[in-house]
Design a binder for these strands. Sequence first.
DNA 1: AGCACGATTAACT
DNA 2: GTTAATCGTGCTC
Length: 198
Amino acid sequence: MGKILSPSFYLSPTLEVSRALLGKRLVRVEADGTRTSGLIVETEGYVGMEDLGCHARSGKTARNASMWGRGGLAYVYFTYGMHWMLNAVTEREGFPSAVLIRAVVPEEGIALMRARRGGLKDKILADGPAKLTQAFAIGKNLDGIDLCDPASPLFIEEGAAVLSKNISTHPRVGLFSVPEPWKSIPWNFKIRHVEVKR
DNA sequence: AGCACGATTAACT
DNA sequence: GTTAATCGTGCTC
């Protein structure tokens, strides 16, 4: 078990946190203590109201309110009529920004993930933003929780070291009708050689 | 009140 | 490569 990341980790600029989260371990703890965990291998930054790819672009609403919270909270939202997405809120309270966790490589609780994912192949248990929320049983009930609290059902701890030369950048995924430069700006980060198959 | 669309996935050809 | 599934949200009428 690694050390849980403290709020100060999340107070840095969002894009720095996006890079720094690569290699960290996302942990889900059930009421009975069962752990499901995996190393984060892909992230995406969403930075403030000026970023027209960010949900905060049209102001604070019941849906995106968590983004305005202090860095280190969770922002969980529903999209495409069926999927939940997990973000780690960043920067100071009052500034809406977050890092979308897009993929993890499973470590603990793989059998449980397999069950939650309907018996699909292990390679695709958590290699997408809505796949990992299924594998980790993350939904609306976890929106706004503190990812820095060891008593939370979901938190992020120290994991594997990742050299910056092993991080590749890409445009963010799925922003079809977002205007430039936000549509193409390279705020998606992946660990090289752990290519996420899709 | 109605409507187009989304930070996606899985199944199918 | 293509497409159905499925519904909350924000914008237009």
